[in-house]
């Protein structure tokens, strides 16, 4: 089975890091095929940044898709730009702190999480992407949660004091994802 995800938001929201963490952790802890493809374009400051992650049992074709199973939008412009690329029956993950516009599709599943506010509340403002990764994994079971925990431990191996807060942030997201599954 092949599952493709696009993560989109402002530059600085950790969109690339979120995709890379998911992809690299999957590569390290499983035998699955996985690709990560960043799309910067001729981006401006404050413009959109996005990336694609494909996870599959089979060899992966294009690492990019305009027919997505899953879409994460961290800001408003990303919602409007990329919502048409979500397949009917697909799942939209919304950063509901920032994205407040109505979602004008009824053929998709919508999972909302106020990740920007949650990150502020736990005094770890940069962790909004890790919370959202938790929401995604909790709702989809795209990979087992231990895979991401290991990935966080690996990523912050050189800054061990950041491991615990990020694992906590991830688990907060996981709960929300599971509740809305």
């Amino acid at each position: 089975m092949e599952r493709n995800l696009m993560i989109a938001g402002f530059g600085g929201q950790g969109v690339m890091t979120m995709g890379k963490l998911l992809a690299e952790a999957t590569s390290q802890a499983t035998d699955l095929n996985v690709t990560f493809f960043p799309s910067y374009g001729a981006a401006m400051r404050g413009g959109t940044a996005n990336c694609y992650v494909v996870i599959s049992d089979d060899p992966i074709g294009a690492p990019v898709s305009y027919s997505l199973e899953d879409l994460v939008v961290m800001n408003g412009p990303s919602l409007h730009k990329f919502l048409p690329n979500l397949k009917p029956g697909g799942t939209l993950f919304v950063n509901s702190t920032i994205v407040t516009d109505p979602i004008d599709r009824d053929d998709i599943k919508v999972i909302k999480a106020p990740v920007t506010q949650m990150a502020i509340d736990i005094k770890n403002e940069r962790a909004l992407n890790v919370i959202m990764l938790g929401v995604y994994v909790g709702a989809t079971d795209a990979v087992p949660e231990e895979v991401i925990v290991k990935g966080i431990e690996h990523k912050f191996a050189h800054k061990p004091k950041l491991i615990e807060p990020n694992v906590e942030a991830f688990k907060m997201g996981l709960e929300i994802g599971r509740q809305q599954k």
Partner: peptide, 9 residues
């Protein structure tokens, strides 16, 4: 550029 910029195991 696809294979240049994408990451894979």
């Amino acid at each position: 550029g696809v294979m240049g910029t994408m990451m894979e195991p």
